[in-house]
């Protein structure tokens, strides 16, 4: 049963552009990007117990590096992508060292402060980042000479990257290292007594999450062909965190579902009202107060109950 459902779901994803119009295909691309981003954040929040409010740093910095290198310094997309991901990952390594001096709320505050500093920098270093105007007129890469300018071709590109990232993050979580990470989340002292190095485990996870955050940032800037400081803002980090928590932190598919819901809500709501931030705030309150464990665990509990009663 599960296999059939998975194959059907995969087929549906691949064939989407042949049944849906460009508007929906583009929406689906955005969802895939948000899902990669949320999954990478979930490695920290759900599996590592490290609640970060600065994950947008990685998305934004990867996007800015790629945008600057291709538009200003004449880099081709390939090398620009490599430098961008490498730079973002290196930044994650440094941020990790700083933020992991603390845990719990201290960690949250440091990640928030670090990302706010980057946001302020993107706004104020206007001779480099173009400040509030953002960097426009960017191009999409042409992997193997294939243009990604149509909605469908970009969607397939994003789907391929998202599949690889989902597979790799899922393997990561179920691996020996993933078990160590969950152990360190639950009983750090015990894990240390068993021979695990809790700090190193958290740090490597932070870097890995930063890496995938960077990948989602690259897709983000390819999709939008534009980058603005808001991509580095607390709102951007908070949207992803809301997706993770709404979907169910610490589950494999929850954050992807949550990210999709947040994105759909944002798209539909902004068609009717301008007040996205207020809505985002209200949804935060609603989710935390009403379904703190998230939608996916809630639904699977419900399904199990129904199965159990049969």
């Amino acid at each position: 049963m599960k296999w059939i459902a998975a194959v059907l779901f995969a087929a549906m994803l691949v064939l989407l552009p042949s049944v849906a119009g460009d508007f929906y295909v583009n929406l689906a691309s955005q969802i895939l990007i948000a899902a990669i981003f949320a999954l990478s954040l979930n490695l920290l929040v759900g599996f590592g117990g490290m609640t970060s409010l600065g994950h947008a740093s990685f998305l934004g910095v990867a996007a800015y590096i790629s945008a600057l290198l291709t538009s200003r310094y004449g880099f081709a997309h390939g090398p620009a992508a490599i430098v961008s991901i490498a730079g973002t990952t290196a930044m994650a390594a440094v941020f990790g060292v700083i933020a992991l001096r603390a845990s719990g709320l201290g960690f949250l505050m440091i990640t928030l402060a670090l990302s706010q500093v980057l946001w302020g920098l993107a706004y104020r270093m206007s001779n480099v980042t173009n400040g509030d105007n953002g960097i426009a007129g960017l191009t999409r890469p042409m992997p193997f000479g294939i243009s990604l300018d149509s909605a469908a071709s970009f969607y397939w590109f994003a789907l391929a990257v998202a599949s690889v990232s989902f597979l790799m993050m899922t393997t990561f979580v179920s691996s020996a290292f993933g078990s160590s990470l969950k152990g360190v989340r639950d009983q750090p002292r015990r894990m240390a007594a068993l021979g695990f190095n809790p700090w190193m485990i958290r740090w490597i996870t932070f870097i890995y999450a930063g890496f995938w955050g960077g990948v989602s940032g690259l897709l983000y800037v390819y999709y939008n062909k534009y980058i603005h400081p808001t991509s580095l803002s607390t709102t951007s980090s908070a949207e992803a965190l809301l997706g993770v928590i709404a979907g169910g932190s610490g589950t494999l598919s929850g954050p992807a579902v949550g990210a999709a819901l947040v994105l759909l809500l944002k798209n539909y709501a902004s068609a009717y009202v301008e007040r996205w931030n207020m809505l985002l705030g209200l949804v935060f309150l609603f989710i935390v107060l009403v379904m703190p464990t998230g939608i996916v665990p809630g639904l699977s509990k419900l399904l199990n109950l129904r199965r159990g009663s049969r």
Partner: peptide
């Protein structure tokens, strides 16, 4: 913490 974040969005948007 998350609801204080949500509240901050609500106030600033208001």
């Amino acid at each position: 913490v998350l609801v204080t974040l949500g509240m901050s969005f609500i106030i600033s948007d208001a």
